[in-house]
Design a protein around this nucleic acid. Structure first.
Lengths: 158, 158
DNA sequence: CAAAATCGCGAAAGATTCTTGCGCGAAAGC
DNA sequence: GCTTTCGCGCAAGAATCTTTCGCGATTTTG
């Protein structure tokens, strides 16, 4: 997984198209980026094997699936030594309510993206699991009202 | 897009599999969920048309693509009337550095998920665009150190 | 500067997958 | 108990995937 890949314009087009529609067929993709199907498939495979494409994911509608609460939690720890950070990181992986988690620098040490079926479930999680976990100092929560923008991780020109 | 769908066990399996690998072929998917290909494809189409599957996305490796800075920004506005919230939400859509944005309740009004090529670019954005945008009161930033957990939005049992 | 090597594209073909139509059986409603 | 409804799975044709191979262009090397 090279940290800096040399990609040409067609590779960038492929990445943009697959970020927008990861289930597009290879012939459709090849047509959009302007080459024929075989080399297009080879490029996609190469991008996957190089780790530039980390995977593919269906985007699910959380409220339609009974997940009405989406929130972010900013966590401050008492001690930020490497071992403590790893311990808390490991703990987040055991909490199904936490969907994504980031170690951050700034006023907090971790940022958690949480999804729960209802407010009670989320509050119980925050109080009984999060805030009472070892080494947790502060927990600030931000309940989401609505998603305002939702694009892929990487910006493409045009 | 019904806010509460009635899904059976097979539908849930489909959603779980496609959240984990959105590019899986339909025959592979049908084999994993235990039905034959045609009804499996019909179910996927139904989930897509119902808006339960909102789309598919390739997950890209940001640092490998020269995007070394991932950060979150918490924005507080001076005035939180509906019009002002909509105005700021619209503004976030014009900033390519902002990849996802949420309107939130709590100490801040918006949470922005930002990606930039380097720290200078990000800092320039924060100072010259974000903090100096109309109606912006406070900007708190959290630079990410590393991603600690990365799963789909919806949790599935087992 | 020319020869050789490397690289990636695209045509062709066989294997796989997608997609539709249809018959069947089970569950629900009258 | 009969009818209707619903969803599964078989089968077949269409589309797609995937490999192989030859060609041309660019780069490297002598």
């Amino acid at each position: 997984m090279p940290l800096k890949a040399d990609l040409d314009a067609i590779d960038w087009k492929i990445l943009r198209e697959l970020q927008n529609d990861g289930r597009m067929t290879n012939v459709e993709l090849s047509s959009r980026v302007g080459i024929s199907a075989p080399p297009c498939l080879r490029r996609v495979r190469r991008l996957e094997e190089a780790g530039i494409i980390r995977g593919y994911r269906a985007l699910l509608n959380a409220p339609a699936l009974g997940m009405d609460v989406v929130a972010f939690c900013l966590i401050g720890l008492h001690h930020q030594a490497d071992a403590e950070l790893k311990t808390f990181a490991e703990r987040t992986r055991g909490w199904p309510i936490v969907r994504d988690a980031w170690m951050v620098s700034g006023e907090s040490d971790f940022l958690l993206h949480c999804v729960a079926s209802d407010l009670g479930t989320f509050q119980t999680f925050v109080i009984e699991e999060l805030a009472s976990a070892p080494n947790v100092d502060t927990v600030r929560t931000a309940l989401t009202i609505r998603r305002v923008k939702d694009e892929g991780l990487v910006a493409f020109p045009s």
